[in-house]
Simulated scan of single mutants.
Amino acid sequence: MQFEGLLKKMQTELGNPIQYFGIFQQDVLNYNQLLNKQIEIQHTGYECLNCGKQKKIFRQGFCYDCFMSSPAVGDWIMRPELSTAHLDIEDRDLIYEKKVQLQPHVVYLAASSDIKVGVTRKTQVPIRWIDQGASSAISIVEVPNRYLAGITEVHLKNLFTDKTSWQKMLKNEVIATDLQEIKNSVKSRLPEEVLPYFTTDATLFYEMHYPVLYYPQKVSSLNLEKTAVFTGKLIGIKGQYLIFEDGTVFNIRTYEGYRVKISL
């Protein structure tokens, strides 16, 4: 059996375990059904997620020209404190920026390799946490725009990292902690303008259970530019990574915009 098409980040459904799906032009692939099976991944080309041209991918699934011009990859994506749509100030496309920035956002704590602080749109809960491979996560504040979320994250970066160690996460070297207790302890450290948005709903705590048969002791990342064809036995899926028996891990999010053949 063979699946062929454009790589995009895996779609997920919260469950025990989480379900992972690859959406291709002609097919939908449930990656969970590939566990304990030998699969081959072959790199066959490129296709920019923005313009659709068969141009080499520069970053985040975009070719160089689109990455430098598209509002979907402006600096405020990675640094939400740079958001300006609430001031009617355009970065690249004010209509797009208002659509994305002027909606409810959540600032959260997630337990993975360490305690991580982050920002996501409310509509991306719990998808964002699954994509990061978090074992658990909790909302701290829910604010009406991306800017307020960004300045909250900046304050909390003095206490927590905003990065995940992918190596530790994929070896399941996960920190054990009480996120609710930590959340309560940081309330006094929040910017005054977001205190009214502090969340108290206990249902905003999530635990994630990933489809992993066992975790490797060592991991190394598959690079499709150097290894155009890879074969291995799939033993797990976590975050946006496929985990193989030999310790090779494949970050599908990194290779968005790559065309591949997946053979069983």
Rank of each mutant, 00 (worst) to 15 (best):
R253S: 07
V174G: 01
E40D: 12
D93I: 05
P17E: 05
F24K: 01
P191D: 11
L87W: 07
G247V: 05
Q42T: 14
F24D: 02
E207M: 01
P126F: 04
F205R: 03
T254S: 12
L49M: 09
P196D: 08
E40N: 13
T44R: 08
K261S: 13
V212N: 02
F244Y: 11
S263T: 13
Y210R: 00
E153Y: 00
G236M: 05
N36M: 15
E256D: 04
F230Q: 12
Q2V: 12
L213K: 10
G236Y: 04
Q167V: 10
G232Q: 09
Q33S: 15
V107K: 00
T120Y: 01
T123L: 13
T203P: 01
I89P: 05
I89M: 11
N223R: 06
D162Y: 00
A149I: 01
G61H: 06
A202R: 07
G74Q: 09
R259I: 06
Y64L: 15
I95M: 12
N145P: 11
G52T: 04
E90Q: 13
M208Y: 15
T227S: 13
Q217V: 00
N223W: 03
E81A: 15
I243Y: 07
Y258T: 02
L148G: 04
N50K: 15
N50Y: 13
I243S: 08
V194H: 11
I39T: 10
V260S: 05
S136R: 01
I175T: 03
C48M: 03
E207A: 03
Y96H: 10
I89T: 11
C51G: 07
E181G: 03
K218H: 08
D114Q: 06
T177V: 12
L204K: 14
D93Y: 05
V219H: 03
E142G: 02
V125I: 13
T199M: 12
K233C: 11
Q180H: 11
L179S: 01
I182Y: 02
P191V: 06
I41N: 10
Q2T: 15
S136V: 00
K218R: 04
R253P: 03
T44M: 05
L94Q: 08
F58G: 07
D178L: 00
L87Y: 07
G22A: 09
Y215T: 00
P104R: 08
F160K: 00
N145R: 04
S136E: 07
A72L: 11
T227N: 15
V100Y: 12
R259F: 09
V260I: 15
V73N: 10
V125R: 06
E81I: 11
K98G: 09
I89E: 12
T203R: 04
K9S: 14
K171R: 13
A72E: 15
P80F: 06
L34Q: 12
Q11F: 14
H43C: 14
P17T: 03
F67T: 03
V249S: 02
S136I: 00
V249G: 03
F24Y: 05
L34Y: 12
K53W: 06
G15Q: 10
E142D: 10
V125Q: 08
Q54R: 14
M10Q: 13
M208E: 05
D131G: 03
L242S: 05
V100P: 08
P104M: 07
T84S: 15
S188Q: 14
Q103W: 08
S135I: 02
G5C: 04
K56L: 09
F205T: 04
G133Q: 01
K8S: 14
